[in-house]
Design a protein around this nucleic acid. Structure first.
Length: 436
RNA sequence: GGAGAGGUCGCCUAGUGGCCUAGGGCGCCGCACUGGAAAUGCGGUAUAGCGCAAGCUAUCGAGGGUUCAAAUCCCUCCCUCUCCGCCA
């Protein structure tokens, strides 16, 4: 996850401004440039000495084959040349390694500049680009009877769909147990979403491992930056995935595609594990913020020139799910300081939950451009025989389950306490209505 | 978990310390031949960094070591395959 050296050299001003727009310190940009120059100089010296050493070593072989005594003075002199060069190389390479480590650290602290059409500012600059559906009020009237829509935790408890207390008993707070219709709703939603993305949207379905090794965690930038947010199995050097983005994006780490293979578009279900350290006290009720949840994630690998449009399409595919479920939502274009360090452009989808009277984030759709691909060395060949270039990566939820479930329960609840199953889910739920 | 065999340039393969700046075949690209094609012949076909360029450097699963010199020898680790054990 980093900025490219070429780009750093060619447009430092834009990168510096990008850092400022995201509220980061632009000084690292200059520090990186200085280190890059030092690295280049040391590398030149090292390469030169290595060339000398190689020549001397080769002459040793030639001399011996030519009849010189293997332990004679001629050979000894050549060996000494090589040894001396080797000693110098060792010193320079140590400096070089240090410079490269520092450079890498600096590069990791330079954020991906936002696209030009992203509003500059903090969360207050986020722009609502569109809304869909009817934003139901909490206070409702049905057949002349006034009633209040209830929050999903009450509905879920009454209909025995999930059990938070027992989840806390067997595992801990934030690990809900889904039961009965609640369990079936999980299955139905996963099945429903994957069906739409594969059958209608042409994506390839992936069912990835829920744990990854450290190389993969590093690839998508989970470590070292976000290690606190993940569950770790240190004994086996494995990490529980916080999102399917991690295993699925890493599928193609260190690969080079032919241009004809792109775009590659995946839809992947996975459980997601998040420690959310420091987030205690917020959204503690219900299933709005939990340590384990389920999600269908979309991951795209695109040609650079196609990624901007692909983000719009990707976002639209997540919206399709909400539309089919008949849930009111809005699409937010995130401002520079609210969008994250690595995203170039990001849309959040928020679904309306009338019981708690809040917009709930159910999807976050991002274009990383080449920033993520660089660290993972995911490239493609624009033309046969051409030099490989970095692909652009994108991803977005389609969708995260818990908040979708909350919105369904709160949107479709009836005055009698039952919940009508959204039309699109009925074939998957094999029921029209959830009752106690 | 135990025993054994392996991991080389897209694929197959050669390679047991210095003519390996990794050879051959397949595939692919270009050219020639052809009415067109097949076949054939010739040439080219990894990635990254540095350099205006010629070119130099690094990489033979990963990392360390021995040596003037490592694909090749030594150590550690990872992965694949076969057999055994265990197991949803």
């Amino acid at each position: 996850m980093s900025i490219g050296l070429t780009r750093l050299r060619e447009e430092p001003d834009r990168i510096r401004q990008g850092a400022i727009d995201k509220g980061e310190d632009p000084a690292v940009v200059d520090a990186a440039r200085a280190l890059e120059g030092r690295r280049r100089q040391l590398l030149g010296e090292s390469d030169l000495l290595k060339a000398e050493r190689n020549v001397a070593s080769k002459r040793v072989g030639e001399a011996i084959r030519g009849g010189a005594a293997p332990n004679g003075p001629e050979v000894a002199a050549l060996k000494q040349t090589s040894t001396e060069a080797g000693a110098q190389i060792e010193k320079i390479d140590a400096d070089l390694a240090a410079a490269e480590t520092q450079l890498e650290e600096m590069l990791l602290r330079i954020p991906n500049p936002a696209d030009p059409d992203v509003p500059v500012g903090d969360a207050s600059a986020n722009r609502t680009v569109r809304t869909w559906g009817e934003q139901l009020p909490r206070e409702a009237t049905t057949d002349g009877q006034a009633w209040s829509r209830r929050p999903h935790w009450d509905i879920g408890a009454d209909l025995k769909m999930f059990d938070l207390e027992r989840g806390a008993k067997i595992t801990g707070s934030g690990f809900p147990v889904y039961m009965g219709a609640g369990s079936r709703l999980q299955r139905a939603l996963i099945d429903f979403m994957l069906d739409i993305h594969t059958t209608e949207h042409g994506m390839t379905e992936v069912w990835p491992p829920a744990v990854v090794n450290s190389a993969s965690a590093r690839g998508t930038g989970q470590i070292p930056d976000k290690e606190d947010l993940m569950y770790v199995a240190p004994r086996d050097d494995l990490y529980l995935v916080p999102t399917a983005e991690v295993p699925v994006t890493n599928l193609h780490r260190d690969e080079i595609f032919d241009a004809a293979e792109l775009p590659i578009r995946y839809a992947a279900y996975s459980p997601c594990f998040r420690r959310e350290a420091g987030a205690a006290g917020k959204d503690t009720r219900g299933i709005l913020r939990v340590h384990q949840f389920d999600k269908v994630e979309m991951v795209f690998f695109e040609k650079p020139e196609a990624s901007a449009e692909a983000l719009e399409w990707l976002t639209g595919r997540a919206e399709v799910i909400l539309q089919r479920l008949g849930l009111a939502y809005r699409v937010l274009l995130m401002a520079t300081k609210d969008m994250g360090f690595v995203q170039a452009k990001k849309y959040d989808l928020e679904v309306w939950a009338p019981g708690v009277e809040r917009w709930l984030e159910v999807s976050s759709c991002s274009n990383f451009r080449d920033y993520q691909a660089r660290r993972m060395a995911i490239r493609y060949r624009p033309e046969p025989g051409a030099k490989p270039e970095l692909v652009h990566t994108l991803n977005g939820s389609g969708l995260a389950l818990p908040r979708t479930v909350a919105a369904i329960l709160e949107t479709y609840q009836q005055p009698d306490g039952s919940v009508v199953v959204p039309e699109a889910l009925r074939p998957y739920m094999r029921m029209d209505r959830i009752t106690a």
